[in-house]
Structures are given as C-alpha cells and as structure tokens.
Simulated scan of single mutants.
Amino acid sequence: MEKRNIAISLPCTGEEEWQATREPLMSGWLTQGPKVAAFEKAFAERHQVPHALAVTSCTTGLHLALAGLGIGPDDEVIVPAFTWVATANVVLYCGATPVFVDVDRATYNLDLAQVATKVTDRTKAVIAVHLFGRCVDIDALRALLPAHVAIVEDAACAAGASWQGRPAGNLGDVASFSFHPRKSVTTGEGGMVTTKNPELAERMNQMRNHGASLSEEQRHHGARPYLLPDFNLLGFNYRMTDLQGAVGLVQLGKLDGFIDERTEWAEFYRRELGDIDWLKQPEVTNGCRHGWQAYVMYVDPSKAPMPRNDMMERLQALGIATRPGTHAIHMLNLYRDRFMIQPEDFPAARDCNDNTMAIPLHNRMSGEDYHYVVNAIRQLGK
C-alpha cells in the first residue's frame, strides 16, 4: 500500500465559513452579539429545547451548568471514571466533590447498575457523558435517582445525536456541547449549554456575562447604552464571539449531513473489521442515533497479536493517526493522589483506559482513506 497521512480528525470547513466571518468583521461587532443569538436560536430548534446559550467551551458550559444549579462545597456530583478530565474538573471548580462510578465496557458510558449505590444525601447531580456520541439511557438513569438530583448531560461529543427520538441536550436538566475541532461541527473553541428550565437559563445567561443584568447587545441597543448594568450574581466571562457564532451557524446547517456520512463509514468499519476476534466494535442500540464523534474499538489484550500501544505505533508508521479512546480520570495523578484512588477501584475504566483505540473517522476522509485504514488494521494480525 502506498503510504497515506490520515489524521485522527480534521474539521470540515471551507469557503462558506470563511465568508460567514465577513459580516461581523465589517460591522465591528466581534463579541457576543447578533450572530451568536442566531446560532443559539438555530441550535435550540435543532435540539428541540427552548433555551441555548453559547459559551467559550464545553468545559466552561459544564461549569456554568453546575454553578447555575447552585452546586458548591459539601455537595457531591457523580461522574463516570472513563471520560475527559474536564468532566471531573468542573466539579472541583465549584468546590464540590466528584464521586466516581465505573463504566459499562459495552457502551463506555456510566454503569447504571452502580450509580444508585453512590447516591448519598449530599448528591446534587450526576454528569451523564454521552461518550464518543452515544447517548446515555437517560430514562433508566432518571429512574435510579431521587427527584432532586439533577442530570447534567456532558454532550461534548453528541451534537445531533439522539436517544429514542429525543435529541441530546433535551434529555436531562441541562447539557453542554463542544465545538472543538475534533467534534462533528466546530467553531474552533466554543460550546453551547441547553436547558428546558427558564429560571436556570436566565441565571446561566447572567452568569456567563460576569453576572450582568443585561447582555452587551441589550445594553448597546437600549435607550441608554452609556449606563452600565447592575450585577446581581457572581459570574464569569464565558461569552462566545460573533465570529464564532457566524461560523457555528454555517456548521450547524451541515450537522446532519456530517453525521449521515460518518454513520455510513462507521458501518463500513463494522462490516470490514467485525470478524476480527481481538477487536470489539462499538455498540449501536436500536433507537439511538449515534453522533460518531469518534470510532472507538476495544483491543482485547487476551487475544490481540500485540499490545494496543504497539498497534498504535505500527499504524502511526503507516501514516494512520490513532488515539486512546480517552483516559480513566481516577488514574490521573491529580485525582489518584487527591482522593487516594487505586487503578483497580474502577476496573472497567482502567481496562478502557489501557485498551481502547480510536481510528480516523471524519468528514475530510476519502473512500480510499477508509480502505487504507481497514487494510492496515487487518495486517496487524498477520
């Protein structure tokens, strides 16, 4: 095979996104303004929620969600042990305690059977991560929890995904999405928070803008733009720029087409690699529209011809970028040392940390690229 160079992910942007930035650049309105408002409205409609608030990242969106829920010291928040570190970091930002739960090896999401055992009178929320674009069974999760415990969707990977016909972002009490370049749609950095709760939406709207009683756009377009607003809440500067909002509007219009294309090639991977007994393909459940932010397989160490890391090195030499699925937070130094956690305390998360492998899946790949990846992986077993 002639060597190719295939990135693990590339944003699919072009002339439309470039042209979309002209209006805010020419108008001079670069910070949060009319383009962000239009992006929020379109995103809310697509995900069937009444409120969407653009922010600087999914991380700041999750922090905003927890702060808006009033979570603070002495509170506990249940978090999956296998996810990106930001999911747990935002709990610490609030002064609360992350309580880790192991994951289901089949879905990589929360092991629901273990969640109920971790609920205490201090539990205020569960962060349900839709990892790699596969939604958590929120109905089953909700049935396990007391009514006062909020469900926060970490939907970083799940724009456009759905569970039983309901879009991600519409499933829990509040959700946060990512528009990082490794996601299906991007604004560079950036995120979106969604909720059906109008009081929570208003509180988060103020908190993302330093706690101001009016947004900059409202003030500048009001009768007395020279007067500063009042500040009723302790807030943050988590506003998205109008340049990003303009790009986000274009990208959002391509979201479903992007996911359809990724779904087609994910099925190709499943067909072509499904007979390899040392590779477990990602699970797809009826009624679930997978967002396919990443295609993540489990390398069975008892059957594989070589360790996962050796495979990744071999594929890198062939020009194929790979990554571990993500990391087990309880094995990271910060959390291991702070909470005195051992790797074996969450065995499924530990195994996923050591043995998952993401292979290229994005909207800048050609059919020849996908065939090249499959052929290279099949050669690993020979």
Rank of each mutant, 00 (worst) to 15 (best):
L334Y: 00
C12E: 15
L332S: 01
R122I: 11
A52Y: 10
T322Y: 01
Y335E: 04
E264F: 04
T21I: 02
V126M: 03
W84H: 13
P73S: 14
W163A: 07
S162N: 08
P98A: 13
Q218T: 06
R271I: 11
R22N: 11
W163F: 14
T56N: 11
M204H: 09
R308E: 10
A328H: 00
Q316W: 06
I78P: 01
A159E: 06
T31R: 15
G33Y: 00
H327F: 06
N333Q: 04
L171F: 03
V103E: 04
N286W: 12
V296C: 15
Y335R: 00
I78S: 00
T326L: 03
S57R: 04
E189C: 07
C135I: 00
G61R: 09
L62S: 12
V55H: 09
A246R: 06
T120A: 10
S215V: 07
G68Q: 11
D369G: 11
P307G: 11
A168M: 05
W265A: 04
V136G: 01
Q206M: 14
S178A: 13
R378F: 02
I341P: 01
W265E: 11
K280G: 09
T194Q: 01
I259K: 08
A168P: 01
E261N: 11
A294F: 09
S215R: 03
D74C: 10
I127T: 01
A376K: 01
A201Y: 15
N197Q: 11
M240L: 10
L361R: 02
D74T: 14
L243I: 04
K35T: 04
E15F: 08
A54Q: 09
Y269H: 06
T187A: 12
V126S: 00
R22P: 14
G160N: 11
N205P: 05
T123N: 05
V152F: 06
V126H: 03
P167T: 15
R134S: 03
V136L: 01
D74S: 09
N205V: 08
R134G: 03
E23D: 10
N197A: 07
N309R: 13
L69W: 05
T21C: 14
L318S: 12
